[in-house]
Amino acid sequence: MAERISTLSDVSTLYDVLLCDVWGVLHNGVDVFQHASEALSAAREKGVTVVLITNSPRPAPGVITQLRMMGVADTAYDRIVTSGDVTRKLIAEGPSKVFLLGPERDMPLLDGLEVQVEAAETAQSIVCTGLFDDEVDVPEDYHDMLLAFQTRGVPLICANPDLIVERGHRMIPCAGAVAAYYQQLGGEIRIAGKPHKPIYQAALAEAREQRGTEIDLSRVMAIGDGMPTDVRGAVDAGLDLLYISGGIHAAEYTVNGKPDEAILNAWLKSEGVDPRFWMPRLA
């Protein structure tokens, strides 16, 4: 049964490295959770290495710029690894003619790669960073296009495995939802971000380089709010987990505006996971 904690400092001395999710922990796409940045900054002051590990399809420099614009303190982390970073390897290893399924702002994902953006009819792979307009579109809107890709055996490379994110107080579909729908249609998908191993291997490599020493996995804790990504990824990587209950799954166990601990633990058990700790928001 997960232990409720009041502050990150209650347990941070148990760890050398924290692998912390971004969207849902540090911000919700609109509002910055200032206490979360302060908690991570305080952990770093005690010698803990903090690596942000995010399913953003943007390479790390773009996410750093975004975090600064939102007001997330630079002192909150040492390094950052994105799904975009590890997905670039999948793109480089795939066919050179790609179709970008997502907003144009995600084009930097392809910078420096020997690929050519093509029309849907001629592309040999799909690079999915999200929906064209995630404010209004849903994956089913792309049924005909995706079915045509599936019929031609075109693989889909998913740059953001998240199914949904919380944007303010709304739930917004992500590239992971498109990938799941494509898989339902019989299409092949390729993913390197959370919960898959490549992004955790990359994050631990960054921590190792930052600390200048080998990393003891028993002294690494992941922090996140997403069951299919943060939670599954941490469990599969053999890491302790601090579950943030106030994220995308809050409706599963919230009663009168507060998480009900008994319902929360029953829900975690039904999902087959047992985080070491939990708290509503990182603080």
Rank of each mutant, 00 (worst) to 15 (best):
E206Q: 14
G168K: 12
T254R: 13
E261W: 03
R232M: 15
F149G: 01
G153E: 04
A262G: 09
V22P: 01
K46V: 06
A159H: 10
V220F: 02
K46I: 07
V11P: 01
L101S: 04
G238V: 10
A203C: 09
A283P: 07
A179E: 03
S83G: 15
Q124P: 00
M69Y: 13
Y243S: 00
E271T: 09
L109H: 08
K46L: 12
G47W: 05
V138C: 07
A92V: 12
R211C: 13
L26W: 01
A175L: 08
T87H: 14
V11G: 03
H249M: 10
Q34E: 07
S41T: 09
P103A: 15
V138M: 07
G153T: 07
I191E: 04
R208N: 00
D85V: 07
E209N: 13
E214T: 05
V178L: 10
V255E: 13
G212H: 14
G94F: 06
K258Y: 04
T82A: 13
V50Q: 11
M107Y: 11
G193S: 08
G62P: 11
K269G: 08
V117G: 07
G102S: 12
K97T: 05
A262F: 08
A148H: 04
I248W: 04
G187H: 06
N256F: 05
T75H: 13
A73K: 06
R232W: 10
R211H: 13
V127R: 03
V51A: 01
G193E: 11
V98D: 05
V72F: 08
G186Q: 14
V50L: 07
G24W: 00
K197M: 14
I215K: 00
E271V: 10
R276D: 03
S56C: 06
D85E: 14
E104F: 09
T75Q: 15
A42K: 12
S270K: 15
E114Y: 12
D31C: 08
G47P: 13
I191L: 09
Q116S: 15
G24H: 01
V81M: 02
M221D: 03
I80N: 04
P57V: 09
R105T: 11
V178S: 02
L110M: 14
K194C: 10
S37A: 15
L156G: 01
K194W: 10
T151G: 06
E3P: 00
V25K: 00
G247E: 00
Q183T: 08
R219C: 06
F99M: 08
T65N: 15
D16Q: 05
E271G: 12
F99K: 04
P259G: 10
N256K: 09
G153H: 04
Q201G: 06
A250D: 11
I248L: 07
A262I: 14
F99N: 05
L282V: 01
